[in-house]
């Protein structure tokens, strides 16, 4: 199957030709397939946000290409604009971009820019609000009267309302309490299931990416350091620690158990841990 997004030898340099020149991405290649849930992890400043902005044509690569269904998004203006709509990007702390008088109108901003009909816009706004758990009454209030977590959900709905095939979220749970985090992650999951969308999520929580994603991209010092399933990536515990990252706590516990001589396999989520422990107990009972 043809990948929906393909990134080939992509490099990006900020402020090129000035004393402040900075190479933020260095020769990165990978492909994204339909329906995947990809996690992007990396130390602060490793280039995660920069990479995300390449994928919907906000930043133009210094060299290399970004292909959307096989077509270079920079080959003509129309395609670049299409990429903005088909690849939705939710920025870090998106609540600071709200500007309209009502939540409804703010969510409608994206669909309106797409030039959709009034009925279609209305349908999308209500559906997007549903995905993030906003009530019909909340649609009519000012976004500035909402709490931080609710504002975040309005901002995410604003991107979801464009019904992007690829939804990219840059640290969507940063600065939220545990319940707020779980709710947002649930919202993303429900959008993915309803639209069979592709999700890419930047996160600093190893637990979250281990539990939710099918695949992890690890960025380190502007380069793509690893690309594989969470199971594959988390076996390189030491390398990850060297990059300033960590592995899920439960994985650490199990690695330690193995060192102590217990015959367990590597696990990444609490669910797997429970299963593994049950197996041992079962084995012990038989013996």
């Amino acid at each position: 199957m043809e990948p929906i997004l393909e990134i080939k030898n992509l490099s990006y340099i900020y402020s090129i030709g000035t004393p402040f020149e900075h190479k933020a991405l260095d020769n990165i290649s990978f492909a994204v397939h339909r329906g995947e849930f990809i996690g992007i992890i990396g130390h602060t400043g490793s280039g995660k946000s920069t990479l995300m902005q390449q994928l919907n044509g906000l930043l133009k690569p210094t060299s290399g290409t970004v292909l959307l269904e096989g077509k270079d998004i920079w080959s003509d203006k129309q395609l670049t604009r299409q990429a903005r709509f088909r690849v939705g990007l939710v920025f870090q702390y998106p609540e600071y971009q709200l500007f309209e008088e009502t939540v409804y109108r703010d969510i409608a901003f994206g669909p309106k820019n797409m030039g959709l009909s009034a009925e279609e816009i209305d349908r999308r706004v209500r559906e997007a609000a549903g995905f993030v758990g906003l009530t019909a009454e909340q649609l009519e209030v000012s976004p500035f009267d909402l709490s931080g977590g609710q504002k975040r959900r309005v901002a995410i709905a604003g991107v979801i309302a464009m019904e992007p095939e690829v939804l990219i979220l840059d640290e969507p749970t940063a600065g939220l309490d545990p319940i707020g985090r779980a709710e947002i992650l649930g919202n993303i999951e429900s959008y993915r299931r309803a639209k069979n969308a592709t999700i890419m999520m930047v996160s600093h929580s190893m637990e979250d990416v281990a539990r939710l994603t099918d695949r992890l991209l690890v960025l380190n010092g502007s380069k793509l350091a690893m690309d594989g399933t969470p199971a594959e990536v988390f076996t390189h515990a030491e390398e990850l620690v060297d990059m300033g990252l960590s592995i899920p706590e439960v994985t650490q516990v199990f690695l330690h158990l193995r060192k102590l001589g217990l015959d367990v396999e590597n696990v990444y989520t609490i669910g797997q841990a429970v299963a593994a422990l049950k197996k041992i107990r079962g084995g012990a009972a038989h013996a």
Partner: peptide, 13 residues
Amino acid sequence: DKIMSAQKARGAD
């Protein structure tokens, strides 16, 4: 810069 990028991502022109 940041706000402009965010609105462009929602199709602002």
